[in-house]
């Protein structure tokens, strides 16, 4: 009945050792408090620093402070989708039950992060650009990311048989992964109203160091926070699944007797 404990363990491969729910619960129970502490700590420092102690921009004034929530949310929404796509690949190839649950739990949190990115971006665009929204390649591709998250959420819940929902959702998530490079490079490939990236792998960040530090703190905080929320939801999902299994087993027992 319990699909998780029924999975044969492959020795020596940590990914499969995690498929054992007891082992996952023990490990995640130790990791979760650390994630929560790091998430709260880094986010609080980054946002207070960004809001009150970082310098205003020479041309944007204080509106630049919106960056400290907008940019981390944007990074986390893309990174979350990488996680969703990775779980989907693991689910499709190795039929890993924990990856199925993780994909279901990442979806809504990623959609939330993308919503933060879109709303704060709009609140930044109105005073600086002069518009809440434009259909340029960057904004549109992030909106597509939001719809991909929503589509995944709907699809995994659309089937009576959860397994089929996991398969369909995983395929959608993997196809949708083509949106990630489009988001990243949209500002370089096409004319957009959105400016190119400030922080790149290849060059020096075109940002004053007094603004860069709070941004990096906030980004770390958002990442740990995202991890904490997903881990907590995943723990709850594993428990709910075990609960369903136990209740079902009991119902069958009482029917048999």
């Amino acid at each position: 009945m319990d699909a998780i404990s029924a999975t044969p363990a492959v020795p020596g491969r940590s990914l499969f050792r995690l498929a054992n729910p007891g082992r996952f619960m023990r490990l995640s129970g130790r990791v979760l408090p650390v994630l929560i502490a790091l998430g709260l700590g880094f986010t609080a420092v980054g946002l207070v620093w960004g809001m009150f102690f970082s310098p205003a921009d020479w041309q944007q004034g204080d509106a630049v402070r919106i960056m400290y929530v907008h940019v981390p949310a944007a990074w986390v929404s893309s990174a979350g989708y990488v996680g969703l796509a990775a779980c989907s690949a693991i689910s499709l190839i190795w039929r890993h039950p924990l990856a199925d649950l993780a994909a279901v739990e990442i979806g809504p949190v990623g959609a939330g992060a993308t919503a933060i990115c879109l709303i704060t971006g709009s609140l930044w665009g109105e005073p600086m650009w002069g518009t809440w929204w434009v259909w340029d390649a960057r904004l549109t591709s992030v909106l597509v990311l939001f719809f991909l998250y929503l589509g995944h959420m709907a699809l995994v819940r659309a089937f009576d048989e959860p397994e089929r929902g996991y398969r369909a959702g995983a395929i959608l998530a993997l196809i949708g992964a083509v949106d990630l490079p489009i988001i990243k490079f949209s500002v370089d490939w096409w004319n957009t109203l959105h400016q190119p990236d400030t922080i790149t792998v290849t060059g020096a960040p075109t940002m004053y160091v007094g603004m860069l530090w709070p941004l990096l703190f906030a980004a770390l905080g958002f990442s740990f926070g995202f991890g904490a929320i997903v881990t907590a939801r995943l723990r709850a999902a594993v428990m709910e699944r075990r609960l369903r299994g136990l209740l079902l087993a009991r119902a069958e027992e009482s029917l048999a007797s």
Partner: peptide
């Protein structure tokens, strides 16, 4: 602070959704 309503709104939206 310049553009204070926009700044406060964006921090508030972030905290409400994350919270």
């Amino acid at each position: 602070m310049t553009n204070l309503p926009y700044i406060v709104a964006s921090y508030a939206v972030t905290l409400v959704i994350a919270g």
